[in-house]
Amino acid sequence: MADDGTTRGQFLSLSTVGIGAAIGGVIGVPATAYILAPVTNEAQFQPVFLGKVDQFTSEQGFDPTAATYVEDPDNPATSPGLAWVHSTGKSNPDWTAADAMFVVFSNRCMHLGCPVQATSQGFQCPCHGGAYNTVGQRIAGPPIRPLDRFQWVIKNSDELWITQRWSVDFNGDGKVLYFPVKMPGQPVAPPGPSIVADVLYPNVTYDHGAVPQAK
């Protein structure tokens, strides 16, 4: 054998390390990919039927009606959702209009995701005392942004459906601004350039269409 400067012992040590690394990779790479795969899963919002329109229109004062739905049809036991349907007494069926007939709030508190309860003053969260007014704006407690809202549509002339979830903020004039959904506890429009904000607080990866503008 030609003397190439490598002893038999060195070769075998190196081979042992190499084969060991290969075996580790064969186990480790698929295991890591398997456990991390859900990170790339995208949430899909399935349009869902909330109830007949006349169930929601008898509201007196501010007294939104609770409507339950299932967020993920594959996991009905673990993804119950609840929407608070507030009937405004107006009649415009365009959900983005200023005089829209309904405002459909998500009951997910924007502090850490507990379910908020409707009161005559607005909404109240049982977990850590977050409170919102009748348009879903935070008035007390730890939440950092208004309640999410649902895009809704009336199908077959009398069925109220929700078709998408949007995170919400208000501009100086009290006009509603819509944003792609973010986790509870994350600001929708943090200060600073938006690219930095998007990196700091990535959207939950709902497959949403164009962001609506309130009229």
Binding site: I35, D72, D74, S79, M183, P202, N203, V204, T205
Partner: peptide, 16 residues
């Protein structure tokens, strides 16, 4: 944040 939460949940929402 959102990635850690999906890692813990095993998906985008609380499930089986």
């Amino acid at each position: 944040g959102p990635f850690i939460s999906k890692f813990l949940l095993g998906g985008p929402v609380f499930g089986a």
